[in-house]
């Protein structure tokens, strides 16, 4: 069998083992560098540029970004096999937007499947559907971000309209090739009204096969990274939505739609 795809090179900025909050079980998250969006609340600003950067971490400069082969990544991923087996965990691709490095993402997922490892990907779906389609045969769970249903507001806060992504969500759901879970970051002043969240939930509920929605409360843990990159933190003093509020959203969504809703990843 031709395993050339193990030599595909891509750019990542971190590999995190023992991640237990993104997808099922104990997972290894590979963070791909480069994003098409510029969400104001982004907690990983170092993920946005494809270029390799230097970020100050606790007073020391740290190079962020590294080119690696799929083989090298899998050498790390494979080491936690016993924990994937016990927990139903596996590999999660995150970013950035993995779809901006489609060959690399595809090869990583394929390599994981070769090892019988569960795969998940956190992504906004920002790519032509033909690109996404290549990944689906090797992808067990697609954790898709939908941030807002209103195209203009979406563009204002993320730099892009949502049309392509919503269209992709439909196509991915209709393909029935992967478990699609919708994730919504709950951002004060952007989408934190019951109606705005319900609009997303109702869209998600109408997608064939979609059963779950995760609502993720905004947090300001990325603030230090902006400083480290010499950038201003766009969110200022915006506060994390409190637990009661989140629970209210959850109840509203579960009441009005058939979806199972979960707070956090």
């Amino acid at each position: 069998m031709n395993k050339d795809y193990l030599d595909v090179v891509g750019r990542i900025f971190d590999i995190q083992r023992y991640s237990i909050h993104d997808g099922t079980g104990i997972r290894t998250i590979v963070f791909l560098k480069g994003c098409a969006l510029r969400c104001r609340w982004c907690c990983n600003p170092e993920s946005q540029e494809h270029a390799i950067e230097t970020m100050m971490v606790n007073g020391k400069p740290k190079v962020v970004g590294k080119d690696v082969t799929v083989r090298e990544v899998m050498e790390t991923v494979r080491r936690d096999m016993p924990y994937y087996n016990r927990s139903g965990g596996g590999l999660t691709l995150s970013g950035g937007e993995s779809l901006l490095q489609p060959d690399f993402a595809e090869a990583l997922l394929r390599a994981a499947k070769d090892m019988q490892v569960n795969t998940a990907m956190e992504s906004m779906g920002f790519a032509r559907y033909e690109v996404i389609e290549r990944l689906l045969p090797s992808l067990d769970t697609y954790l898709m971000d939908i941030k807002h249903m209103d195209a203009r507001k979406h563009a204002m806060y993320t730099g892009r309209e949502n049309t392509l992504m919503l269209e992709n969500a439909r196509k991915i759901a209709q393909s029935h090739m992967t478990e699609l879970i919708i994730r919504v970051p709950v951002i004060p002043g952007f989408n934190d009204t019951e109606q705005e969240l319900l609009d997303i939930a109702q869209f998600a509920a109408a997608l064939p096969g979609v059963r779950q929605i995760h609502i993720l409360p905004y947090h300001s843990f990325g603030r230090g990274k902006y400083e480290g990159l010499g950038r201003e933190y766009p969110m200022g003093d915006v506060r994390t939505p409190d637990d009661d509020k989140m629970r209210k959203y959850l109840e509203a969504i579960e009441h009005k739609t058939s979806l199972r809703c979960q707070i956090g990843g």
């Binding site: 991640s19 909050h21 993104d22 971490v57 843990f221 603030r223 230090g224 956090g264």
Partner: peptide
């Protein structure tokens, strides 16, 4: 030392001081 941060767990000492405080 592993701590849960937000939607994820991380090594405590790799976090920024402000986040650690939090």
């Amino acid at each position: 030392l592993v701590v849960r941060v937000a939607g994820y767990s991380a090594l405590f000492t790799t976090l920024s001081k402000s986040l650690q405080d939090d």
